[in-house]
Amino acid sequence: MKEWWSFLFPPSSACWFCGTPMQARLFAPPEKRFCPVCLEALQPIREPICQVCGRGFDKAPSADVCFDCVRIAEEERVMNRSPVAYTQQVAAWVRLFKYRGKEGLATPMGRWMAEVARVHYARENISLVTFVPLHEERLIQRGFNQAEKLADEVGRRLRLPVCPLLVRNKDTAYQSKRTREERLSALGGSVILADGAWKRQLANQVVLIVDDVYTTGATVRECAKPLRQAGVKKVCSVTFAR
């Protein structure tokens, strides 16, 4: 009996990000899985939020859609949710994950993203998980697609199949240093449906797109276009940071 109780309620755990020993129950929510230092740096997004992109509002808004999303046609919008704001510390963690070989960060990041998706998309009946593709040249340089790593963890946690439905047919270079207008121009027509995706019978499916960071939303909207053309019923996204 004692061994069973210790398994369910271990006396101590470790911070998901830095590994600092701490008290944490087995079924504790994600925010209880980080030490106080990391949690403060992470800045979890809480209500009220934009009902489209998931950005947190500093104060109670006069509308439920932020200024950026109002400018996007309703038929082009993709609902996004993210657990944390894109702070300097989060940006540093994302760089470690993408460029410094810290692939293990996909586990805590993906876990939290899965919980956010579980809560916010409970009524959407998501049937497939996919991810933002990398161009072949970028994939060779980096060695892995960070969005795919996150999608694998999200799919595992949500018990949903993860399918490579999309292909990037041109290298759009790094988007992080571009203006909004430059992003929109560069991304146009850069994502197409993968050759084998038609075999998935996408009509009437609800697809969740996974990526690491949501900035302007141009990337997930570009990914949504071929999916909608293939008959997907609804497209939504989850990213680690917004």
Rank of each mutant, 00 (worst) to 15 (best):
M1E: 08
K2E: 10
E3I: 10
E3G: 03
W5Y: 14
W5A: 15
F9Y: 04
P11D: 02
S13E: 02
S13Q: 09
C15K: 00
F17H: 14
C18A: 00
G19L: 07
G19W: 08
T20H: 11
P21Y: 04
P21A: 04
P21D: 02
M22N: 06
M22T: 06
M22C: 10
Q23W: 11
A24S: 15
R25K: 11
L26T: 13
F27Y: 13
A28H: 12
P29C: 06
E31W: 14
E31I: 13
K32P: 05
C35T: 07
V37R: 12
L39R: 08
L39C: 09
R46Q: 11
E47G: 02
V52Y: 07
V52N: 05
C53V: 05
F57P: 00
D58K: 14
A63S: 15
A63P: 04
V65G: 00
C66Y: 00
C69T: 01
A73M: 01
A73I: 01
E75T: 05
E76H: 09
R77H: 01
V78L: 02
P83V: 01
V84R: 03
A85C: 05
Q88M: 08
V90K: 03
A92I: 06
V94M: 02
R95D: 08
L96A: 04
L96K: 06
Y99A: 12
R100M: 05
K102Y: 14
E103F: 05
G104W: 13
G104M: 11
M109Q: 01
Y121C: 04
A122F: 09
N125I: 01
S127F: 05
L128E: 08
L128K: 07
V129A: 00
F131T: 07
V132Y: 13
E137S: 14
R138S: 14
L139M: 09
I140V: 15
Q141F: 11
Q141S: 13
G143Y: 06
G143D: 08
G143T: 03
F144Q: 02
Q146K: 02
K149S: 14
K149V: 04
L150E: 02
A151N: 07
A151P: 04
G155L: 02
G155P: 03
P161G: 04
R168L: 04
Q175L: 14
S176M: 12
R178Y: 10
T179C: 12
R180T: 14
E182L: 08
L184G: 05
S185Y: 13
D195C: 14
W198P: 07
W198G: 12
R200N: 06
R200E: 15
Q201S: 14
L202M: 13
L202F: 04
L202N: 09
A203I: 10
N204K: 15
V206C: 10
I209P: 04
Y214P: 00
T215I: 06
T215F: 10
G217L: 04
A218V: 00
R221W: 12
E222A: 10
C223P: 00
C223I: 00
Q229M: 15
G231Q: 12
G231Y: 09
S237T: 09
S237D: 12
